[in-house]
Design a binder for these strands. Sequence first.
DNA 1: CAACCGCGTGATAGCGCTGTCAATATCGCT
DNA 2: AGCGATATTGACAGCGCTATCACGCGGTTG
Lengths: 356, 356
Amino acid sequence: MGRKRIKPGKVRLTEVAALAGVSPITVSRFFRNPDTVSAGRRLRIESAAKDLGYVPNLAARALASQRTEVIGVLIPSLTNNVFSDVLRGIYDAFEGSRYSIQLANTRYSLLQEERLLRLFVMQKPAGLIVTGVDQTAEGRAIVQAADCPVVQIMETGPEPIDMMIGFSHVDACYAAISHLLAQGCRRIGFLGARMDPRVQRRLQGYQNAMKAAGVFDPRLIVTTAVPTSTTIGGNLFSDLMLKAPDVDAVFCANDDLALGVLFECQRRHIAVPEQIAIVGFNDMEFMASAVPTLTSVRTNRYEMGLRAATMIMDEVEGRPVAERVVDLGFEVMERQSSTLQRAAAVPADRASGTKW
Amino acid sequence: MGRKRIKPGKVRLTEVAALAGVSPITVSRFFRNPDTVSAGRRLRIESAAKDLGYVPNLAARALASQRTEVIGVLIPSLTNNVFSDVLRGIYDAFEGSRYSIQLANTRYSLLQEERLLRLFVMQKPAGLIVTGVDQTAEGRAIVQAADCPVVQIMETGPEPIDMMIGFSHVDACYAAISHLLAQGCRRIGFLGARMDPRVQRRLQGYQNAMKAAGVFDPRLIVTTAVPTSTTIGGNLFSDLMLKAPDVDAVFCANDDLALGVLFECQRRHIAVPEQIAIVGFNDMEFMASAVPTLTSVRTNRYEMGLRAATMIMDEVEGRPVAERVVDLGFEVMERQSSTLQRAAAVPADRASGTKW
DNA sequence: CAACCGCGTGATAGCGCTGTCAATATCGCT
DNA sequence: AGCGATATTGACAGCGCTATCACGCGGTTG
């Protein structure tokens, strides 16, 4: 026959109900929505629960109600601090709500992502936040099966799974390169690490801008599959100097690389921006305090996380979400590292700090 | 009476069992431990599950088995990239295992920590990883009630809740200051931000070392409750220069501050290390590539996360954990920013890169 | 004054899975 | 062949909670 009898010390809804002199279902209602219970019983239940040290069993709740209050979040890297800002936004938004977050790390692998999505779906999450737009067909199918609100973050693109919030990496990089061109730079190098889909799209933006200006040269592109770091930034710059000693500017696909380039320039006694201009991407906090201050493309990562989370909650709780695809834009933060005295050969139609 | 009849499309263990021609419990066994099922049935079940698109229901599993495979992780900040290394270790260790991680953010608030612990306990986690040793009595009680392995990380201290892995922040800072003293520095400033418990202990180590050398001066200490950042590093250094213009070295409670100090020195044309030596804490990646390279105290954060996770798994799976309290030590990475030509007045008994 | 509504409450019947123990099949060995 | 030991399988009874429907009650409506 069945299992061992009930442990004596265990406190269930039933025990609380008995002590409070109400039915278990009323206690259940009290915990989910206190307002639906009359004031008198509310007090009795409250004190009974406290006396017994009652702790709701989430598994039982999830099984009976066929849903959970877990939000699954999938990001490709924990090391890349770009994501920590997004996460902060997400965590801040869910702060104090009844939802809890389950964070998983795809390591930039689509297969890993599939595996994790499958795992999430088993938990019947209330919502899902995934990074990027490059899910496999299988991955999309799994998400669809979850039958819950989904937000894709970090970039915008066609065919959202459900909702989407981000910006165009192609346009953002195009704008950064345009700024350098406007400063009179012509031999603009591109440094990229990891080369994940979003960095690829930045490279695309670079190519578009360089070709449009008629100054594209593949030798100016130096990339590596290795994850980004300050050291790698210095190394890539050294490689670039070998391939194209005449560079007058460097666009770095992210800020760590830019900092590495700055250090390498200091090491080589190359004047920034006089001899070489530097532009980064993401506008990390340190960019504005470096010497010289470093130009970067600001992306609204915190807001992205915050709004993604809000979109999920609105959708779950039945509030209509007006904008299901949000482009947060970006801003080229022009600083000393790319501000040149020399006459701009390209019209400087993109003024300082232009919002796109 | 009860609820609506079963949805027709739903795939449960029972459906898979029927199609495979076995009993539900056998299917259950197959999913938890395929080896306990004979090869013939294994194949039949596998194909049946695939045909039906069966997805196990984790809530039901958790309810029936009275446990989950969720590991709760509590960290105080998502922005402070000290934790991203620890997290990477944790995620790497659980990678491919059956456990999944639930990460929560206490924001350096003990009350918040309590709330989150309470939330975790409702899920009956398989294990818990918490940051620091300063839980409230209430918090400790909640954790104890969870009745699962617990590892405290980031520092060592007396009275572990269960297991513990970290290092002594007092000793680590003491060693860093000793290094500066050995270089002949006497007016050593202390810069600290956020001032969480671990930074407080670093300050303690600083005071111990300075007093032991007879050179303690409270005017050399500049701190703020604001979270750490490069900009704050510059600001704190400026404050320090006002309070004590004769400083010959700065110890920064973390590396962001140190970078900010370096930039501020560049701005003020103060030679590092000739006029002022700089030492940071944590040994972030960029410290070794700065110009000059920056001395820091390396802490083994990745290993800490990895081993904390391993300890949890060992404990859960019944493998005895030999070392329940692990001191990972630290290493003073002596670099250009604190290496002085001038004669050392204090015996340099702590050679370069000494492991403690 | 009957019909109707909405609120607060309760009884019932599962949600989908697994722990426990029993039953059966298989095997090695004397 | 006979025996116990071992592997494999199954029956049963919940795990603790909530969806659903039913009911009683006071007040509103035509």
